[in-house]
Write a protein that binds this DNA or RNA. Structure first.
Lengths: 432, 432
DNA sequence: ATGTTGGCTAGAAGCCGACAA
DNA sequence: TTGTCGGCTTCTAGCCAACAT
């Protein structure tokens, strides 16, 4: 057997050279994953980043030194986003270049707001979880009728039986060809020749999903989503997980100190740690007044590639890691769920993850004019209140203070560590 | 097809739970790889470590901040060594726990000296590079006659044809069974049934090697060595290579500042970066006076799992990275090779990698009494001379100064950053 | 001594409709 | 509408010695 030119797969570095199809990437990433747009403002949580690394390594870190100069969140400009897919496993991930900022202008804030609306799941899309029959060597793939009719090129039904050759490209642009035939009693769409090669090459098993899309250029593409069961089981072998954690924190701390850009990888399917949050989303969430017993809804991906909301109740508010990440808002809400079915749901979430079921009174009173929030048990009641109030107010300042006509006006915001400085600067800019 | 319980392979975490057979590990690692013994002293080169990461990532790092507090070498106590093998690829690597030390005692130094002698390549060992026929689906594996006679259990030649079932375990203790038969015209040893399963499971290709050993308990084991062509192509997807580099340096710097232990992975086949060097080996190399034009020999692994020496000449002496790692001895020798055949050899090596071809005059004059070395072009001629002279002297101090009877006497040595302090301490300890 | 090839065969892969949920 | 199965066919994996180097 001849060796492939470079490693196990035919073109391992290909995913790196070519740019990845964005629609296919999002289809593989799932309906809940949305990436903030380039040029927008985001909030970066080192704690969440650390959590993703721990999940990827399947190992909690024994010891990570505290980084006293690294705040629990950094407001950053998102300079660059590139989409990637692991050449071995097709796992999707994104590389982002972030630059901590002390001030930002209104355009960037608006751009950040944009990020909230777009849902990137392609319209011409279908996804099927593979059955035992689909993955057995005994036969082919049974195509759901609707899917074949909506996505596949139409068959010539004058043929007996109607059949055609299908070609679709994956995330790495590798083409896969299948024989698509409409036969059986009752009639059905099937993929036969070529299918098993795909299954074994991608190492798919019953429970994994395959998806077909037709992108905006009406190209026919296919991708996979693996069942959560399959962790990539990276035991690294390159650097220790301790050094990884230190590296992440040191890189962020260095960037924060110098306002220099740094690079992170966001791996949406490795762990549910959305540690780069659009600033607008974060700000919007800061309007929410949380309290024990509060009811909320939260979106989850279903087995069948859809989404559904589950109801829950806030049962506690406390720091996830009171030692290293004091007063962080990262997953500081303890929650219970109405349905205790399978498919575990997290016991801790962040405020921007949930959709509160609120009484109208609490939403959107004009900032600075609404009554001060009552103290909340379990919430830090130190001077962070001031900071929170400030941040809650931010997204609306441009409108409320009639700055619509001065789009270039710069007004500063803070990263926590230099709060005092920026806060003073803030009032100066208002006063001018 | 049913999914394996956890990922692609049957027991991905198994290599982590069970301890790896040391002889098999070393057989897979190759004849040039030797690990310093636990409890010995080693010299750790962050620069070399960084190099290994760059090689593993197949990416030079654009930007790594300087770590001014991190010396280019750290003398460390080696506390722990665990052997590992990647569950996916069987790539061998070692995890080491190092603790920077300012002082060390004579026992540790002697232990470090031990490390030099042991060659861990098992005696009952054979290794064959796979041919196209060996890896094709058309047939089995042609066993070299000598190998079968030396390592395999003897066949019953009264049978027609002589045959038996062979069982061997790999690094993860997974058993593999093969039909071993002696047949054909002319007669030969073959592995038939079971062989192709092994080849496809381990994803072996022509050019890769398979090796069989019989360990000290006379267990029959097998392992693989992949051709260098196949890089693991880790594009990480977890953390950026920048953060990795920073993580490595930050972890080492933190450990150096606190004399606290830190953990590294040494991946001998990923790159030829032996960045953890036994102190005795380092000290011994410090005796070598290098000069332009000096002739030397150096060992390399051959295609056929053996070793051979190549002759070369020193063509330059300079820092590999004069900015970040000034006066580091890491690969500061530029070299040319007598044979310019294929199988590239490095253009830069470290002094402890080579065996100088020296005139007797230069070796082992009594330290402190020999004439001062002439200035060397291209070598730093600053106060590092003093340091080098001191370090050259170290391994012999115990004997030369009659300290044989005081095994507990502590005498300090330095890491570069605290040179002055330690150097003073050194004379104090001599004086007492 | 051992790599490659053609011939042969057993068994797996894979196409099909029947049947059932 | 679609998952699984028994029946049947095709093709590849894989055993063998011949032949070549």
């Amino acid at each position: 057997m001849k060796a492939p030119p470079n490693g196990f797969l035919a073109n391992p570095a290909e995913g790196e050279r070519k740019s990845i199809n964005s629609e296919l990437w999002h289809a593989c990433a799932g309906p809940l994953v949305s990436l903030p747009p380039v040029g927008s403002l985001v909030v970066y949580f080192p704690q969440g980043h650390s959590e993703q690394v721990a999940a990827s390594m399947q190992k909690e870190t024994d010891f990570v030194p505290s980084y006293p100069n690294l705040p629990s969140k950094l407001i950053c400009m998102l300079h660059n986003v590139t989409l990637h897919a692991d050449p071995e496993t097709d796992e999707v991930y994104a590389q982002m270049t972030l630059q901590p900022v002390n001030k930002y202008d209104r355009e960037a804030l608006l751009a950040s707001d944009m990020g909230l609306k777009q849902s990137r799941q392609p319209a011409e899309f279908f996804c099927k979880t593979l059955t035992a029959s689909d993955t057995s060597t005994h036969g082919g793939f049974s195509v759901p009728r609707r899917a074949a009719e909506k996505i596949f090129p139409p068959l010539d039904f004058s043929m007996q039986p109607p059949a055609q050759e299908l070609q679709a490209r994956d995330l790495h642009e590798n083409p896969w060809t299948f024989r698509h035939i409409y036969r059986g009693q009752p009639k059905r769409h099937l993929l036969t020749t070529g299918w098993s090669v795909f299954v074994s090459n991608k190492r798919l098993f019953a429970g994994d999903s395959v998806l077909f899309i037709r992108d905006e250029k009406s190209q026919f593409l296919l991708g996979i989503r693996r069942a959560n069961r399959q962790q990539p089981a990276l035991s690294s072998s390159v650097i220790s997980s301790d050094s990884m954690h230190i590296g992440i924190l040191a890189a962020a701390a260095h960037a924060a100190a110098n306002n220099s850009p740094f690079t992170i990888f966001y791996n949406p399917r490795a762990s549910p740690s959305e540690f780069v949050v659009p600033l607008a989303k974060y700000n919007k969430a800061m309007y929410t007044q949380v309290s024990l017993g509060m009811r909320f809804r939260m979106m989850f991906e279903t087995e069948e590639c859809g989404v559904r909301r589950y109801m829950g109740t806030i049962t506690g508010i406390s720091d996830l890691d009171p030692v290293r990440w004091k007063n962080s808002q990262w997953r500081n809400l303890q929650v219970g769920w109405d349905e205790s079915t399978a498919g575990e749901r997290p016991t801790r979430v962040s405020i921007w993850d949930i959709e509160p079921v609120v009484t109208p009174f609490y939403i959107c009173p004009p900032p600075f004019f609404r009554p001060r929030f009552p103290k909340q048990p379990g919430m830090p009641d130190n001077d962070n209140d001031v900071e929170n109030a400030f941040k809650r107010a931010m997204p609306w300042l441009g409108d409320d203070f009639g700055m619509k006509d001065s789009p270039n006006s710069i007004f500063p915001v803070c990263s926590c560590s230099i709060w005092t400085l920026s806060f003073n600067g803030f009032f100066e800019s208002i006063a001018q």
